[in-house]
Amino acid sequence: MMLPELAFAPGNAEWGLVGWLALLAGCLALDETSGAQTWLSQPLPAALLAGLVCGSPMAGLAVGLPLQLALTMNLPVGQTVTGDASGAAVAGVGGAVLSGRLPAVLGAGSGDPALTGWLLLGAALISLCGHPLIQAERRLHLVWMLQGRRTLRDGRLGRLERIHLRCVLATVLRGAVFGAAGTLAVAGLWVPVYDAMPAGLSPALSWLPWLAGALGLGAVFERYGLSPHWRWVTVGVAAGWLLGVAA
């Protein structure tokens, strides 16, 4: 396979969009690990927000929905932050829009379903790349926190406040840089590689969002126990089937 040509050459408008996406990714990084921890940094709303920023909410829905299903059981219990899912969602959507492509929403007619699978795979890899960055940031927090011990000797409260605010800023900065780099990587590298891929892989990529979603739902059943709660699950499955019929 020939290496794809890097056809992505962003103009002023694209750089502006990358800037907005970076800002969004920074705010979402704060929400995901440090800030209010609202629902917005979950993959689905994060991708949808990125889609709205890019003017293509359907692209956000296409990437966000399977990503959310696969990552539903990524829970911050203990110290198990796996990756930067919100940054990855922003990068997946932003990269697709910047390269002028429209991924397909699960089960919907328009868009490229194989591209959805490819972006999902890219988002997973980008999210995993975010893990060491989050850990590095937390090691930095430790260094800064230990500087606060000086206040235990002199009682200067402002130092502690400045250290904490510095940590807030570091998170926003980490998220913004990660989001921008991820977006550019998807637009400049990941999507061009997709264009150069053999056509035989297209069905496998079309399957990917479905399989990842099904495995994600399987992870939910495993966590809560399928056999003790089979009645609740059966009721849900019947309702879901009817929902599919109605749709």
Binding site: L69, G107, W210, G213, A214, L217, V220, F221, Y224, H229, W232, V233, T234, V235, G236, V237, A238, A239, G240, W241, L242, L243, G244, A247
Partner: peptide, 12 residues
């Protein structure tokens, strides 16, 4: 669990 079931039914 019910919502996961709904999504599973829709998937199927």
């Amino acid at each position: 669990l019910v919502l996961a079931g709904v999504l599973a039914g829709w998937f199927l």
